[in-house]
Computed example of a mutant assay.
Amino acid sequence: MTSQSTLLEQYAALDSAAVSDALDALDLTPGQAGFLPVWGTPKIVGFAVTVQLEPYQPGPSGAHIGATAVADANESNVIVVANDGRTDVSCWGGLLSLGASLNGVRGVVADGACRDVHEACEIGFPVFAKGRIPATARGRLQQRSTGEPVRLGEVTVTPGDLVLADETGVVVVPVAHLQTVLDHAQGVAAREQAIAADLRAGVALHEAMRDARLAGITEEH
């Protein structure tokens, strides 16, 4: 069985489009739009640690949003923050980025907005989000749960699922399909590399780039 570290290395060699194509081929939810890096062009691959947020309700003070997930995460993880796509309030900030970075966390994907972008950039911590806003979460958001399945766009993320995010978008690979999706995605990448080599060698685009070839289907002549 392939080790977790080897799986992460192999997925890191792929992009979100190849993995999305593989998910499609297996009738799994493909890649998600709208999650963009807030600085630079990082790519992150890791196993999900999840946080579910909800609107603030007055009551006893609990853990700061995201703090327990940061404490539980390590160098193999990506933190997924579910905030229903809200962009009117920040659900991730600079101190969370610092704490996660010090724990070796690979990055965060937030279904919402973030703040303190310069702080994440300064420490080189990748943050993918739906937007940026200075408005604090204090008095606006609270943590409902951590370590439970959450919705990220159109897909459910279960702790331990693989999350890959790059400048194109985000893909989520269910833990039960890690090896199968990887095999398909590597096939997609290899076919596209072969087509690119043909184009550079002078093969006409309509000859090199055929739907059957892209799909890995043997064509009959």
Rank of each mutant, 00 (worst) to 15 (best):
D15E: 13
L23V: 02
V45W: 11
P37M: 08
V45T: 15
D24F: 03
Y11N: 08
G34W: 09
Y11W: 02
L23Q: 01
D27E: 14
V38K: 11
K43T: 12
L14H: 10
L14M: 12
A12R: 11
L8F: 00
G46K: 01
L14D: 11
V19Q: 00
S20G: 12
A25G: 15
T29F: 03
A17C: 07
P37Q: 10
L26I: 02
G40D: 13
Q10E: 14
W39I: 02
E9N: 07
G34K: 06
A25T: 06
D27W: 06
L8K: 12
G46I: 06
G40K: 09
V38L: 15
A18H: 14
L14I: 10
D15W: 05
A12M: 04
A33I: 03
G31I: 02
V38E: 09
A25H: 06
D15P: 04
I44K: 06
W39Q: 09
L8P: 03
T29E: 07
S16W: 03
V19Y: 02
A12D: 15
V38C: 12
Y11D: 06
D21R: 14
L14E: 08
A25V: 00
F47H: 10
V45E: 10
L8A: 14
D24S: 13
K43S: 14
G31M: 06
F35P: 03
A13W: 03
G40Q: 09
F35L: 11
F47P: 04
L28R: 09
S20I: 05
K43R: 15
V38S: 07
Y11L: 03
D24R: 13
A17K: 13
D15N: 15
L23D: 01
I44A: 08
Q10T: 04
V45S: 07
K43Y: 01
S16P: 01
Q32W: 02
L36A: 15
V38W: 00
I44F: 06
S16H: 05
L14K: 08
A33F: 07
L8I: 15
A12V: 01
G46L: 02
S16R: 05
T29H: 10
W39F: 10
A17G: 08
T41D: 15
A18D: 15
A18L: 04
L26Y: 01
K43D: 02
W39Y: 11
L14Y: 07
L28E: 14
L36I: 14
L36R: 14
D24P: 00
T41K: 13
A13F: 05
L26N: 08
A12L: 05
L36W: 05
K43Q: 15
L23M: 04
L23N: 01
L23H: 04
I44M: 08
A12E: 11
G34L: 09
P42E: 05
A18Y: 07
L36P: 00
F35S: 05
D15K: 04
L28P: 12
P42H: 07
A18W: 04
S20D: 03
A18E: 11
G31V: 08
A33D: 13
T41Y: 09
G31Q: 00
A17D: 13
V38A: 05
E9A: 12
P42C: 07
V19N: 00
D15T: 04
Q10H: 12
L36H: 12
G40P: 09
S16Q: 08
L36Q: 14
G40F: 12
G40C: 12
Q10I: 03
